[in-house]
């Protein structure tokens, strides 16, 4: 009993931070939601621990549960960017385009977050797992229960979609890359 508690505590310490941030980004930067979802996920692990298959990676099992929870949440709320937000985004972009000199990294991050929130759940999850959780394509395929090719394809089209939405930052990003000596 005591050993089990210690094992559970070790698992929590290893994955709680990752999952909390995952939920935070996936659920519209809502900290309270992220908190609730993190607790709910570990509660499910406690109650349904017998469902874990030791042949699989524990990390991918965790993220598959988290992914399904987010999908259910999306289905509940049918998150869509309403007209007001769309206007705000366009206005913001046009304003940024006109004053591209004053754009900074912070605004890029904000618009990136906004663009990510407009993605569908599958693409968003794939992107999140790949670039924030730094999981391999194989791990993502296990977590999302799909083939590696599907994951690669989703990643590519997600990146392409983001690129089209953040095209306004093309020049500033190039400048940043030059500053970082990544471009000749």
């Amino acid at each position: 009993m005591e050993k089990d508690a210690k094992a559970f505590e070790a698992l929590y310490d290893r994955y709680a931070r990752l999952l909390f941030n995952y939920f935070h980004r996936m659920l519209w930067k809502d900290r309270e939601k992220a908190k609730d979802f993190t607790q709910e996920l570990f509660s499910k692990i406690i109650q349904k621990s017998e469902l874990y298959n030791p042949e699989r990676s524990f990390k991918t099992w965790l993220y598959s549960i988290a992914h399904n929870m987010c999908k259910n949440e999306y289905a509940k709320h049918e998150v869509r960017v309403d007209a007001h937000e769309q206007i705000r985004y366009s206005g913001n972009a046009s304003q940024q385009e006109s004053t591209s000199v004053s754009m900074d990294k912070a605004s890029f991050k904000e618009d990136l977050a906004l663009a990510l929130s407009e993605l569908d759940a599958v693409k968003r999850t794939t992107f999140e797992l790949r670039f924030y959780q730094e999981m391999s394509v194989q791990e993502i395929s296990e977590a999302m229960e799909c083939s590696e090719g599907t994951v690669k394809s989703r990643l590519f089209y997600t990146l392409k979609e983001l690129n089209s939405k953040l095209k306004i930052y093309e020049h500033i990003l190039k400048a940043l890359l030059i500053l970082m000596n990544l471009l000749p």
């Binding site: 990146l159 953040l166 890359l177």
Partner: peptide, 10 residues
Amino acid sequence: ESMRSVLMEL
């Protein structure tokens, strides 16, 4: 190049 800059920034 645009995608590359976005990806690098990401």
